[in-house]
Structures are given as structure tokens and as C-alpha cells.
Amino acid sequence: MSEPILSLRELSVSVETREGPRALVDRVSFDLEPGEILGLVGESGSGKSVTCRALIRLLPSSSLSVTGGSILSRGEEVLTMDDRRLRRLRGGTIGMIFQNPTSHLDPVMTIGDQIMESVRFHRSVGKKDARARAIEVLTQVGIPDPVHRLTNFPHEFSGGMRQRAMIAVALACDPEVLIADEPTTALDVTVQAQILRLLMDLRDRDGLSIILITHDLGIVAQSCDGVAVMYGGRICERGPMRTILGDAKHPYTAGLIACQPGEAPKGQPVRTIPGQPPTVGAMPSGCRFHPRCANARAACSETQPAMVALAPDHDLACHYPLGASEGGPRA
């Protein structure tokens, strides 16, 4: 395996609350290999979006701060970069797209201008070259008639086209990594299928590496190579997609899979995970999933399970993994 293109080690992000700092993201580690689509799965409040914004040091509020760990982009530490390097990183090396293209595209600038602005900011090229690049990148994301579309404003695009346009802006400077934060949640299923297809094409054709944040395991199954499952600000299980979906060892991962309404016989109750996802103010002790876990025992509420490799590429943080023989807590 080649050197990872992006590598997180023990990244922690805290939020300042009235009761003092609280960890939103707690020692999260994962690698993104070149040409990989990594699914980052979790429910609301799992810290998946915050993790990815921390990756390019774009934390949404000043009360959030990175409190530890390291982020290596091609071996270079992101957390200590100066502003100049950081600006090159954002957009130049790592592009980002969001759930809602309407609020992340500038409504008073044409799509062409938004792409050209990014190109001209990152590469000192003339207007003509920037325009050529804009046409190229619009073609790349499958927007028909790109020459004409350059002069359109975001509101003149349909929902799916707007998401494509946002991807085009993110790809303008040919980044190596695309962070996609719930990119299809606001879209209709047929359009979602188009955007997922586009992301996979970008990976296959242009070698783009993608971190895909989602709550939908179906999307993970259809488009991701690797999966990291987050719960309560921690990664509880990570591994190759087929391993995670087919042979999940963490009760939370298995619970999420069993929750899919298609998994239960018609008319029978759907399997559920009881209780609510934890909130920042009230994180359970030990393993954060233990209050909702059917397998929980005393050790689960006392000590935090360490991340252990089950296989070279399958890591798990659980005291009593599914399918393991009964007995005392795993060392």
C-alpha cells in the first residue's frame, strides 16, 4: 500500500461550554489512501462533520478548537501550517463540498466567475486560461453546455446541477482530496444516484480521493471502499466496506445495519437501537455506546475500550465484540 494521502492521528476537537471544554471529537485516527472513497458514518452529534472541517482547519465556530493530535497531508502537518500554506491547502490540495449547495455558492456571482476566482487565486494564470479551466471542470462534472452555463447564476441551476456546480468549484484547482459532507442528503433519489455516480467516476477517471460523510449505509455500500463508523465523537469501528457491512463486530455498527427497514420482514417491527444518541453535554462514561448496547457489561461503563486491530485493516474499539467467545473483557 502506498503512503496515505491524508492521515489523522488522535485528533481531538473541543467545544467551549459554560461548564468548561467538552470533547466533540475524541482521539480520532484514520488514513485516506490515494484513490480511496472513505465513508465516515455516524448519526447527528457523532462528530463526523466537525472532524472533516478540522481537517482543513475550518471549524464552524470560534468556540471550537483542536486540542490535540495531528493531521498529515502528504507528510506535512496541517495543524501548524502558516496562513499562506493553509490557503494553498484549502481548495488547492483539499476541496470541500456540502449538503446544501444553495447556501454554499455565492448567489450574486456567476458559476463561471466562482470557478475562475478559485483558479486565479491558487494558480497565477490569466483570465483566458482560467476560463478554459472552468469549461473543462464543468465538463468534468457533467454539466451540459458548459460555455453557456459559465454565465449562469446559481439560482438558474436545478438542485442536482447546483450540486454539480459546487463540485466543479471544489475541483477547480485539481485537488487530490475531496471532502463531501452529506452531499446527497438534500437531493432526490434519482439525482442522488447521479451524484454518487459522478463521485465514483471522478475517483476512477481522475484518481481523486474522497471522504464521504453520510448517515446512509446504502450510500456507503454503493460507493465506498473503506468505512469508519463514528459514535459520540469517537471512531468505534473501521475497515473495508465489505467487512464492515458483512461482518460488523461493534454492536453499534451491527445495530445500524439491522435498523434498515428493508432488513425486517414486512409488517414486523423494525429492529431499533433503543435510546437516543448522546449529546455533547452528557457523554456516557467508558464506552459511549454502553447505555444503548444490549451486550454491555460492567466494564463497558467503566473503561473506554482501546482501538485494537482485528485484522490488518479492521480496527475495533469494543470490550465485547460480536461473535467473540464469552468471557472476561478482551485485554
Partner: peptide, 21 residues
């Protein structure tokens, strides 16, 4: 056909219908 199935072997169609509603 456009619902992403949790079974990775039930692939999404390679060419989803074009256009938006």
C-alpha cells in the same frame, strides 16, 4: 433502482436517469 441498497452486490444502475425532476 435508484435506492442505494445496503447490499454492495446490488449495484446502482451505471447510468442513472438524466436530469432533475
Amino acid at each position: 433502482a435508484a435506492i442505494p441498497d445496503i447490499n454492495p452486490d446490488h449495484r446502482l444502475p451505471a447510468d442513472p436517469p438524466p436530469g432533475d425532476p
